[in-house]
């Protein structure tokens, strides 16, 4: 599903993002990527999305060779991924429904498919009643649910979340995490980068700890301080 083989990323300013990272994430897994700022979490996610390419080594995602792929294939790689950001990134001039539908329009879905899939996705994240609300009429947690619906509506094989609870209060964070777990149980591989230890500790999932661009520990059913 996701495979890093000896992947190294050195940015043009000399900063090392990742150093000889080898890692395998199987289909249907739920993985936390943790570590302090600058540990390589963001680089790891960027390589998966082809926002960056590795300087050395290989990265495979959903059958695509990210380290060596033509520009024209990037959109198709991204269609196999659902992405959730800390800062939501919703379109302010579109309603919750339209924001989710937009993701389907982009991949040229039929309007019939859109009419069927969007309510399902909004229902899954528990926002059916707020379909007509604009992002500024929604709370942070609700906005993140819309983002989740948008990420899921095209049925991606992998869901990637970069600090999905970074802007949310603890209670809402747990709700979002439960939602991610539910999505995972439906068969979607979920990769979450975070540095919120309470969440990691509560979830009892696989935890990959990064430091200085290298894997410090990789524990099944781990917690934030397993390395100690």
């Amino acid at each position: 599903m996701i495979r890093f083989v000896d992947a190294t990323k050195v940015y043009s300013n000399g900063v090392v993002g990742l150093k000889n990272l080898t890692l395998r994430i199987e289909k249907g897994e739920f993985v936390f990527i943790i570590g302090p700022s600058g540990s390589g979490k963001s680089t790891f996610l960027k390589l998966i999305m082809h926002e960056e390419v590795p300087t050395e080594g290989e990265v495979y995602v959903n059958g695509y060779s990210v380290h060596d792929m033509p520009h024209s294939e990037i959109p198709y790689l991204r269609r196999s991924l659902g992405v959730v950001f800390q800062d939501f990134r919703l379109l302010p001039n579109k309603t919750a429904y339209e924001n989710v539908a937009f993701a389907m329009q982009i991949v040229e879905a039929t309007s019939r498919e859109i009419r069927r899939q969007v309510p399902l996705a909004l229902g899954l994240v528990g926002l059916s009643k707020k379909a007509k609300a604009y992002p500024d009429q929604l709370s942070g947690g609700e906005q993140q649910r819309v983002v989740l619906a948008r990420a899921l509506v095209n049925n991606p094989a992998v869901l990637i979340a970069d600090e999905p609870t970074g802007n949310l209060d603890p209670k809402t964070s747990i709700e979002i995490m439960n939602l991610l777990e539910e999505i995972n149980q439906r068969g979607t591989t979920v990769v979450v980068a975070t540095h919120e230890k309470s969440i990691v500790d509560a979830m009892k999932k696989r935890v990959v700890t990064l430091e200085h661009g290298e894997i410090k520990s990789d524990v099944k059913k781990g917690s934030y301080f397993d390395e100690n």
Partner: peptide, 16 residues
């Protein structure tokens, strides 16, 4: 630019 970025993450083709 915001919208363009989102479009790219969702997998919009360049032409789109």
């Amino acid at each position: 630019r915001h919208q363009i970025e989102i479009m790219k993450y969702v997998g919009a083709l360049d032409s789109f």
